[in-house]
Design a protein around this nucleic acid. Structure first.
Length: 268
DNA sequence: ATGATTTGACCATG
DNA sequence: CATGGTCAAATCAT
């Protein structure tokens, strides 16, 4: 199946148009909302999920575009853009052989057999993002060529619901603090949050994803995805980061975008 | 008392 | 043998 050379470009255009249209819808919703009276609490309540959904779509479109821009083989569109989340955990990187799959799953229970799936997705962030799931730390390690500890987390529901999701958090630089969070596997547990505000599904696909998030938020209440959450991973203390500092850093630091050329700035 | 974190040991992989 | 992912007992927090 040959791709026409313009496929990638067209896909980017489509994603941008989609993002534009969704942003317009969002604008309409917001304008309409501001025209209603403040006593209209009921309406406000019904608008909120719609707004969240639209925001998610916009972000998804932009992310898709960035991913398309970021891939060498721009024609291999379907491999990189974000579609629906896969229903189950796949074998390592799809190109892995059946044998590799078998040995992975066979080894899953044994202690010390640690062949991993490819990362499901990955983020770089100046803060430790709440992602809406309850994580439990099960280990930490100083790794080769890394100045800082790497922490290992599994889903709290690993045993009660058999949820296979794990993540690693690696601090990659000191000033400003930057954390790389790598997720493995997908949650099949029932989490306390609605799917609308989960980050993961929007960014899930068969192949690994690399995103770079920068947030200027400084309080837990301000986290984009914290919502009414009470059971997520406890956050380490963090420093206050100035806006201009972040921007400057995005522009000047190249190694912090090691895996991605793009810093997505989520200012809520 | 219960659940989360810390930390050294364990062990498969290359 | 070095490395990195996981286990589990000890410890901490609530």
């Amino acid at each position: 199946m040959e791709n026409q050379p313009s496929n990638g470009r067209r896909a980017m255009e489509e994603e941008l148009i989609k993002g534009c249209e969704t942003a317009n819808q969002l604008l309409e919703v917001l304008v309409h909302k501001s025209n209603t009276t403040h006593e209209d609490v009921e309406l406000e309540g019904s608008v909120q999920p719609l707004v969240e959904d639209l925001v998610r779509k916009v972000l998804c479109s932009f992310t898709n575009t960035l991913l398309l821009l970021n891939t060498n083989n721009i024609n291999d569109v379907s491999k990189y853009t974000i579609k629906d989340a896969p229903s189950s955990v796949k074998c390592p990187e799809t190109q892995g052989t059946d044998e590799a799959c078998k040995s992975f799953f066979h080894a899953e229970k044994r202690r010390g057999c640690y062949k991993r799936n490819a990362p499901t997705w990955e983020t770089n962030s100046s803060i430790l993002l709440e992602d809406g799931y309850a994580w439990r730390k099960y280990g930490q390690k100083i790794t080769l060529n890394a100045k800082y500890l790497r922490s290992y987390y599994r889903c709290t529901h690993k045993y009660d619901q058999g949820c296979p999701a794990t993540k690693q958090v690696q601090r990659t630089q000191e000033d400003p603090p930057l954390y790389r969070t790598t997720y493995y596997g997908h949650h099949n547990c029932k989490s306390s949050l609605s799917p609308e505000i989960m980050i993961e599904p929007a960014f899930s696909s068969g192949s690994s994803m690399i995103l770079s998030f920068t947030s200027t938020l400084t309080s837990k209440e301000g986290y984009p995805f914290s919502s009414s959450l009470s059971s997520s991973t406890k956050l380490e203390p963090m420093e206050v980061i100035q806006d201009d500092h972040i921007v400057q850093n995005q522009l000047s630091s190249s190694d912090y975008l090691l895996l991605s050329d793009y810093g997505l700035d989520f200012n809520y």
